[in-house]
Design a protein around this nucleic acid. Structure first.
Length: 361
DNA sequence: AACCCGGGGAC
DNA sequence: GTCCCAGGGTT
């Protein structure tokens, strides 16, 4: 019986050989050669990077990661920081629940585990913001736990290796089992490098468009490569239409040249971030409903695309300086920020666009 | 299982 | 313009 050959999913020796030569050089990563010499990754840094990298490209994350590490070099430092500061540092990166969960997780680990992250995927996944992927990734990369690490890259690589005719959402269990089998059947000790190798392969060779099959170390075992069109895997589902929404935003300056900001709601889109006063977002253009009477002037519109909607805001600027009492009387509570301090605020990109449209005073 | 939740790089 | 990125939480 040739069970080993029959069960073979992919050639791990080929993958390791490729990874040893082609591993991406990333700020949070220990290189394969250093890893072999016994250097271990800092779980705090790996965790921080994994959270930032969720649905976010490496290129976008790098600067945010460095700034976070500079400000909070350890998990305990992050736990002792304020949520407000974390949101300010996260502003512009998107998916802000990650920032709130990151801070909550740091405080959990600080309080319950002395600032030391658990060393198993099972325990890691109990923590806020650490799900099936991140728990497996941290456990594999930091502690070489033999566990399947399945992200979007690995899903695509496996869908092609196996020529899966199911959309990813339906094929996840099969993919997880296949990765687990690839790990288990080959006495893999380098679980972390296996995971990172698979992800690097997906990011640089087995790309969504125009995969570079001609230089792929796994092409020999790839059923998609053997087919006429590898790019058709994984099977794509029809995309949903993105509705258009419209609203108005209101820019107010005081006599000191400071702009009025307020805090968004605790839940929902851009929760707990900062904003300028703005209207409801509706499916039709609406006339402005100014917070109070004054010489309002239109500064034009800005467009912003979210995952599930396209938003167009008309920006109105008050033509004269406002008194703080006018905002208070309008039922608005917030604070005033001079332009040079705006960069330090927890402003999502949407409202940075709005303020830029109004022009600095 | 389906939906909500941002922003940007690459094409 | 489209695609999709080292996903998790909620319902």
């Amino acid at each position: 019986m040739h069970i080993a050959a029959k069960n073979k999913i992919l050639n791990t020796n080929e993958l390791f050989h490729w990874y040893d030569k082609n591993a991406r050089d990333l700020p949070w990563r220990v290189s394969p050669s250093n890893r072999k010499s016994g250097i271990q990754p800092d779980p705090y840094r790996v965790w921080l990077s994994e959270i930032m990298l969720q649905q976010t490209t490496v290129a976008t994350v790098k600067d945010y990661y460095q700034r976070f590490l500079q400000k909070w070099p350890t998990l305990d430092a992050l736990a002792n920081g304020s949520l407000d500061d974390v949101l300010k540092m996260w502003a512009g990166l998107g998916y802000y629940s990650r920032a709130r969960n990151l801070h909550a997780c740091a405080q959990q680990v600080h309080a319950d585990f002395g600032g030391i992250l658990p060393n198993s995927a099972a325990d890691l996944q109990k923590l806020t913001g650490i799900g099936p992927y991140a728990s497996a990734a941290i456990a594999a990369i930091c502690f070489d736990e033999k566990i399947a690490v399945v992200d979007g890259n690995v899903e695509r690589v496996m869908a092609r290796l196996l020529a899966l005719d199911l959309p990813i959402s339906k094929a996840k269990p099969q993919i997880r089992l296949a990765v687990q089998k690839a790990l288990g059947g080959n006495q893999i000790k380098r679980s972390g490098d296996f995971a990172q190798g698979m992800m690097d392969l997906g990011a640089t060779i087995c790309t969504p468009k125009r995969p570079r099959c001609n230089i792929c170390p796994l092409a020999k075992d790839c059923r998609a490569f053997a087919s006429e069109n590898p790019e058709k895997y994984p099977v794509k589902l029809p995309k949903k239409t993105r509705p258009n929404k419209f609203g108005n935003a209101y820019i107010v300056w005081d006599k000191n040249g400071a702009i009025f900001l307020q805090k968004r709601a605790d839940k929902g889109l851009l929760a707990q971030m900062s904003e300028v006063p703005n209207s409801e977002w509706t499916d039709r253009i609406q006339p402005p409903d100014f917070p109070f009477a004054g010489q309002w002037k239109s500064a034009g519109t800005i467009a912003h695309i979210f995952t599930h909607l396209k938003l167009e805001l008309t920006v109105y600027v008050l033509g004269e300086t406002a008194k703080h009492s006018q905002l208070q009387n309008a039922g608005l509570t917030g604070w005033w920020v001079i332009p040079k301090n705006l960069a330090g605020e927890a402003l999502p990109t949407l409202f940075k666009k709005v303020i830029a449209k109004a022009g600095a005073k």
